[in-house]
Design a protein around this nucleic acid. Sequence first.
DNA 1: TCCTTATGCCAACGCCATTGACGTTGATCA
DNA 2: TGATCAACGTCAATGGCGTTGGCATAAGGA
Lengths: 235, 235
Amino acid sequence: MAKRVVPEADRRRRRPTKQGQVLTHGLIVETALRMLREHGADGLTARRLGLALGADASAVYRYFRGMDDLILAIADELFGHAMADWRPTGDWRADLRDLGLRIHHAYLAHPQAAVLTASRVTGRPNEVASDETILGVLRGAGFPDADAVRIYHAFIDQSLAFAILDAATLALPKAAREGDEEVWRDTYARLPAETHPNIAATAPLLVARMNDSAYRTALDMLLSSAAAQLRAVGA
Amino acid sequence: MAKRVVPEADRRRRRPTKQGQVLTHGLIVETALRMLREHGADGLTARRLGLALGADASAVYRYFRGMDDLILAIADELFGHAMADWRPTGDWRADLRDLGLRIHHAYLAHPQAAVLTASRVTGRPNEVASDETILGVLRGAGFPDADAVRIYHAFIDQSLAFAILDAATLALPKAAREGDEEVWRDTYARLPAETHPNIAATAPLLVARMNDSAYRTALDMLLSSAAAQLRAVGA
DNA sequence: TCCTTATGCCAACGCCATTGACGTTGATCA
DNA sequence: TGATCAACGTCAATGGCGTTGGCATAAGGA
């Protein structure tokens, strides 16, 4: 269970590029992830990816049907990494907590990738396996199907939204590049207290999302709400 | 309070395009929103926007610094629409519920726009006003600042994630165009019960997100959790 | 009436993803 | 050993994209 799926057919003929690099699905995805983290979503283009691989841009198309295909592969790689070697403990709350933190950390490690892939449902092996696992924990805990799905949705939403808004909290490369555009941090900090008293009062708290504790808190709120639901069903 | 902000400086000289159209900030944003809804995120390009306006692509640049600027304007328009004429009732739970549904509906009306704008924090008037309003309701209800911000985050996350995943649930134009790509609906429905028993058992529930009741349920979970928190603080 | 300025239009730039043809390599099998 | 064949890296080209600078023109003020 929760076995990581890696693309196959990577073991036949390998011919090195002009720069001597040997291409594989895995290498391309890794390189793309690195480019995303280092240069942002706009920094990942077929040309630059080819360059980073020491190959021609079009070489990527031997392995992926297009950039879209590559992005789905990146998303699935994230899930595969997050769920690698996971094992249930028998305590559904602990399990869900662990799963949530794993997904959260995977997204945190690649915020740009999170933004890029979050709005996509890949239907790929690792993502589907992750869904299957989460649903299994909930149904195994005794939740009726409808409740299990509802909590599953809330659970996924939580991770997803945190990932996206965390990425937005970071100084986006685009905003930073343009220079004249306000970054979130500054935007909220500079609002006058007369017109926006509530934002002004909480500004430091507002911009401090980017840590585990905020996510942990939200996750715990969800879990205790779910536990209450389960007690209600059991009673 | 919650007054809708529309871009200014739309009242000086207006010269019609060749097709007789008169351009304004508002008209361009409306047209862009329509294109998003009708042709998806990839359907909105400067050239096509210009065409739809009966003008040249470059005409847009007289009103917006670039496509990025336009997208932020679209996002803020959504918030402006959602919060128009909102008034607090004095019951914080009812108020939050109403605000959540308003934002939810605004996103639902333009799923593609939601995906496009969700990962951006605009810092524009309508969005900031919305944040100010939500924080005001929470702080007015008696939540300490740290709790108010935490709940505010969870609240925003909920709307955001629902919007994004709802949009993903829809047959994305890109996937539909390629034809060979599985859409979410089919992906989950077709998984064999042997390998994915939990998904197979809940598949019909899994794909049925696209309605108010799912969001309402999640929202209520959040609100009752918040209420419990408030009681704990008050005691 | 003339001047200023907003603004629409045109042509061009550089970048993008994607594709089809071509050449080269390594594996397979007789 | 040598022929065959599929895999796959490279090249050149295509059409679309956002964006810009220059130019023409119309509206409003004087």
